[in-house]
Structures are given as C-alpha cells and as structure tokens.
Design a protein around this nucleic acid. Structure first.
Length: 222
DNA sequence: ATCCCGAGGG
DNA sequence: CCCTCTGGAT
C-alpha cells in the first residue's frame, strides 16, 4: 500500500473515532469555570499539571477578589500565591498570571489578544494554553489543544508516533478537519479521564477498542 | 509511587 | 535534550 493510501486510511479512522466520540460525549464542553476571556486564560494557566476540578475550587475566591486583568496585575503577589496554592507550582503560576495580566493591560489594551503569536508572548502561555483560550473564548481554531490526555490517547490510537506535544499537534492538524479540532481535544480529554486512563486503559469497557491498535496489545502504554 | 487540560530555563 | 516547579488525589 502506498504512503498516501496509508495516510488516507489513517485519516478515515480518525474521522470514525471522532464520530463515535461525539456520540459518546454529545455535550462535552470546557470543564473550567470562567466568565471572561481573561478568566479563562488564568484558569487555563492554573490547570497545568492539575485537575480542572481543583482549578474550579480556587477560581471562585480568586475571581471574587481579583475579577479582571487590572486587578490581577496590581495584586499583592503573596495574595495571589495563597489563593492559587492548592493547584501546585503556585509561585510560578502566581507570577505567570500576574505577568500575563500586566502584559494584557500594558500591551493589549486590557483584552486577551486573538492572535496566536501575541498570546505566546504572555508569560506562562504556550501552544496548549493559547489553543484553549482561542477556541473557547473566541471560537478561533488556530491549532489542536494537546494536553497530557490528547497526547496519550492520540498515541495509543495510533494516530501519531510522536511524543513531543508540538509534533503531536502537527500530526493531528493534518489528520482532522479544522472545525473539529477542539471537538477532538475536548472529547479525548473526557475519554482520557473516564476510560483510557494513564495507568489503566480499561480497554474492555472502551467504545473505541475496535478502532484502536493498542486494544489488542495491552502493553502499549504511555 | 504516579498522575493531573504545562511552561520555562539550562 | 534534560531539569525544575508544587500540591492533591489515588
């Protein structure tokens, strides 16, 4: 079989997986709680190596005291640290959300920028965070959100051989139709949390098993 | 002991 | 490429 035929087959399988995920999780949305683009940006920065559930426990108090970019920009850094402490990496995260908000106030007129290259200038923001904010705050599908779940499941599903999230994203961009990029990520994250977990893929209860090359070889983890 | 919607620095 | 940052849950 030619390279292009193999690729077309992989693309077709990706589409079938997507259709099935949409049937499995028809109402999947972003599980971070927020009211504004700035709040989504802050919540997403806080979500690094932390569950969304944990983030949602600290953001109500955080946003009650510091609801917008100017407030976070001028906050006492130690107040920010204690408010975000339980999400882990709290010194970095406090510094980054304040640095990002200061840049938003000083360079971007108080608004979260809509361009990828501008978002990437913000401290604590790389492609994963930028993709989440663009997709959910603005409906802009600039790239595919590749977090730990999307990376692990895309690999297990045989849709990428890469482990670097940037390269995984490049593969997914070529495999999936642009309007579905965030649908893909959101639903893989749901599936990764509930079924295809890091330490146990639970293949026997997985609705994607017949489309998954790893289901028949239980050793294929990571 | 390992993982969670990562990012930055060396 | 590696390492570090950090707390909470399992």
């Amino acid at each position: 079989m030619s390279i292009t035929r193999k690729w077309a087959a992989k693309q077709q399988r990706a589409l079938e997986i997507l259709i099935r995920l949409q049937r499995l999780y028809p109402d999947a949305t972003c599980t971070l709680n927020y009211e504004t683009p700035v709040q989504l940006l802050v919540a997403t920065i806080l979500s690094a190596q932390c569950t969304d559930e944990r983030v949602n426990k600290v953001t109500p108090a955080l946003f009650a005291r510091f609801p917008d970019a100017p407030a976070i920009a001028s906050a006492d850094i130690q107040d920010l640290e204690s408010l975000v402490r339980s999400t882990g990496f709290y010194r970095n995260k406090a510094k980054n959300i304040q640095g990002a908000c200061r840049a938003i106030v000083e360079k971007f007129g108080g608004k979260v920028p809509k361009r990828m290259e501008e978002l990437l200038e913000l401290p604590g923001v790389a492609r994963k965070t930028a993709n989440v904010v663009l997709a959910h705050a603005y409906g802009i599908h600039q790239g595919v959100t590749v977090d730990t779940h999307v990376k692990r499941l895309s690999y297990r599903l045989g849709l990428t051989e890469e482990t670097d999230p940037i390269r995984v994203e490049r593969d997914l961009i070529r495999l999936l139709p642009q309007p579905d990029w965030e649908n893909w990520s959101i639903r893989l994250i749901y599936h990764g949390r509930s079924i295809c977990m890091a330490r146990n893929p639970n293949c026997s209860s997985c609705a994607l098993a017949d489309l998954c090359p790893s289901a028949s070889e239980p050793q294929r983890h990571s």
